[in-house]
């Protein structure tokens, strides 16, 4: 079908209808949506992009609400829908749309973008569901230094304190992957045969880390103690 003379508004109207057919698992013609997406993502046409948003933003919002982790977030469905559509656009602009053979696949990707927006948000904004230990109040990490420190820099410092490869693996499992001793022993049975062995090694490593003057200074903002 030659769409070269079809107004974008007509394509949008038919695409909205065909999308509803697809979602209702009725017979549908994906060509209108495909052409609308092509104008939006390949040509960068504002009118087509606006229609894509108007058709798919509500759908992405609905998908966000149905995501199993949505209730763990502190954000609106609109935020995740907007983030997902933005990521969808940035990933597929130019000629990437050509790698999608069907509308079903395009919509699966949009849905995956909704999932990604929620999961990425939860990585950086975890919701505390466990009560803090009784002695623990809000943890006041040294904010002044903290905000300038990157993960790579901190990891380099940790590796300079903990130099043994097995010990570094334990620190990685404990602080990067948040694994429990039993999980570590299960994943690396050739290195640690029991969870108890992992726990003992971790206690030793945590002692070293606590005693490192640079790490103490980064965490508390206080000057290192003198050796005297």
């Amino acid at each position: 079908m030659d769409f070269s003379t079809t107004p974008t508004s007509v394509l949008a109207e038919k695409c909205a209808m065909q999308t509803q057919n697809y979602l209702a698992q009725r017979e549908n013609d994906p060509r209108f949506c495909y052409e609308l997406l092509r104008r939006a993502l390949v040509e960068g046409a504002s009118e087509a992009l606006t229609h894509v948003y108007q058709i798919y933003l509500p759908l992405a919002g609905r998908w966000a609400r149905r995501h199993p982790s949505f209730d763990l977030t502190d954000e609106s469905a609109g935020f995740f829908a907007s983030t997902a559509l933005g990521n969808f656009y940035f990933a597929l602009r130019g000629n990437s749309l050509a790698t999608f053979e069907t509308l079903s696949r395009v919509l699966s990707y949009l849905k995956a973008c909704v999932h990604s927006a929620i999961m990425q948000h939860l990585r950086t904004h975890p919701i505390v569901t466990q009560p803090l230990p009784e002695t623990g109040g809000p943890v006041a990490v040294n904010q002044q230094l903290d905000k300038h420190l990157t993960a790579d820099e901190l990891w380099s410092l940790v590796r300079s304190i903990v130099t043994d490869p097995d010990d570094q693996l334990l620190v990685h499992c404990r602080f990067v992957l948040d694994m429990k001793p039993a999980e570590i022993a299960e994943q690396y049975p050739s290195r640690w045969s029991t969870a108890r062995e992992v726990s003992v090694a971790l206690q030793r490593i945590r002692r070293w880390l606590r005693k490192d003057p640079m790490l103490r200074q980064l965490a508390t903002g206080e000057q290192p103690e003198s050796d005297s």
Binding site: R123, V141, D146, L154, W155, V158, L209
Partner: peptide
């Protein structure tokens, strides 16, 4: 706690 919090905050899934 502050030292471990620093490590957890910065290193988790980095």
């Amino acid at each position: 706690r502050q030292i471990e919090h620093l490590l957890e905050q910065h290193l988790f899934r980095f």
